Computed example of a mutant assay.
Amino acid sequence: MDSNNLSPARKGIVGIQFLFVAFGATVLVPLLVGLDPSTALFTAGIGTLIFHLVTKGKVPIFLGSSFAFIAPIIKATELYGLAGTLSGMVSVAFVYFLMSALVKWQGIKLIERLFPPVVIGPVIILIGLSLAGTGVSMAKENWILALVSLLTAVFVSMKAKGLFKLIPIFCGILAGYVTALLFFDIDLSGIRDAAWLGLPQFVFPVFSWEPILFMIPVAIAPVIEHVGDVYVVNTVTGKDFVKDPGLHRTLLGDGLACLVAGVLGGPPVTTYSEVTGAMSLTKVTNPQVIRIAAVAAIVFSVIGKISALLKSIPGAVLGGIMLLLFGTIACAGIATLINSCTDLSRTRNIIIVSLTLTIGIGGAALSWGDFSLSGIGLAALIGVLLNLLLPKEDA
């Protein structure tokens, strides 16, 4: 199918289909961290359009809620409150801006030196495992609903064909919700009372240094994910977006999208490999189709009934999905180490991986007056420093 010759109607249908692929993951993140799912849809749509503006409309990428920030947002909200945490989420944008400038100046080699797989792998593992207890706590509210959601997501991941294979999270949530409607009591008054049209619930940040310093190191993982996803899109489209419009532009576009999301009260956004997979499956790679998906996300975000429906999803349903989701993220970290052929027989690599994991999982904290750095942020910083300071071993 030549995606450049699609009729406007076909482009619209495919664009909405792409949003459907990204929908479940995009709204799951805010539901888990206590943000408004409509705001997340709105900022995903706006962020994607900003990204396309910065990249000259050439790169077919959709930006949605980043899973990497689920655990840090929950922890930071406990420590600093939601408004303070939002200031930390805004600061994520400046990591992208810095990396964009470094890539423009030195090329991709500098990022590869600062954040090699031996650093990124254990950080991703931490992101996945840090909220395992939260997933179990939510699931045990109703193990029947949790297991229905979990088993459906597993079945779709393994057995589904075509586009359905790209939306296991959406299918799991849908199956759990339908089961809850049929066999358990769900309060639907919020849906009945919600207006059909209404703006998302924007929440604005209050500046605070602590959550900023807490959140900035976490951005290392999605920055590396961004670079990898751009190369995957290159493969799917047969073009080289690292050269034109340039990796520095894609990083800048992602950073600006994160900035807008944080200012308006949405989670940081990242490149969505689910949509890239849908492009590979449908052979539709026209960036115009991605922009249609972005506009559809904005339209959905102002339909009040949709927001109320999402908020009525039982916690146990989300808990069942979290059991699979966080484990999958941890596996991605393990795969990073394996695919890069990281040699864990070398003392240097063992030290970096071991200390990163134990500091993160053990809950170590660095405090100085009112300042505190802990968890994933501290572990990521330790990993980067060890990689730079420990001498290289001879092969």
Rank of each mutant, 00 (worst) to 15 (best):
W143R: 10
Y272K: 02
T55F: 03
V236S: 12
P314R: 01
T26Q: 00
K159Y: 11
S208W: 13
K58W: 12
T77M: 00
G24N: 03
K165E: 13
A93L: 09
R113H: 08
S7F: 05
G319D: 04
I292C: 07
I224G: 07
F69N: 01
G315C: 07
S100N: 13
E274P: 12
I329E: 00
P205A: 09
T342C: 11
I173T: 00
K159F: 11
V232Y: 11
T152V: 13
S137M: 11
D244I: 15
T26K: 00
M158S: 12
G47T: 05
G363M: 10
R192I: 10
W196E: 06
M215D: 00
G262F: 01
I108M: 04
I127A: 02
K104V: 08
L6S: 07
K56D: 14
R291G: 09
A132F: 11
A297V: 02
N5T: 14
L41N: 07
V136A: 11
I298R: 06
G319E: 01
A25P: 01
P267D: 02
A83P: 04
L53G: 12
V136G: 05
D343S: 13
L174Q: 00
L256M: 12
P37N: 04
A101P: 02
I111G: 12
G246H: 09
G34Y: 01
T237N: 08
F115I: 05
E225P: 09
L102V: 15
V90L: 04
S280L: 03
I303M: 08
S130A: 14
R346Q: 09
L131G: 00
K311W: 00
P245N: 15
A335W: 10
F97I: 08
V232Q: 10
G253L: 03
A332F: 15
P116R: 07
S66Q: 14
P222T: 09
S65Y: 00
A160V: 07
G246I: 06
M158I: 12
V118W: 12
A195H: 08
A93G: 13
D187T: 09
E210A: 13
I169V: 14
T235W: 09
L79P: 06
V90Y: 02
K11M: 14
I298W: 13
E78I: 15
A71L: 10
D394C: 07
L357A: 14
I382A: 15
A83G: 13
A40P: 10
F164K: 02
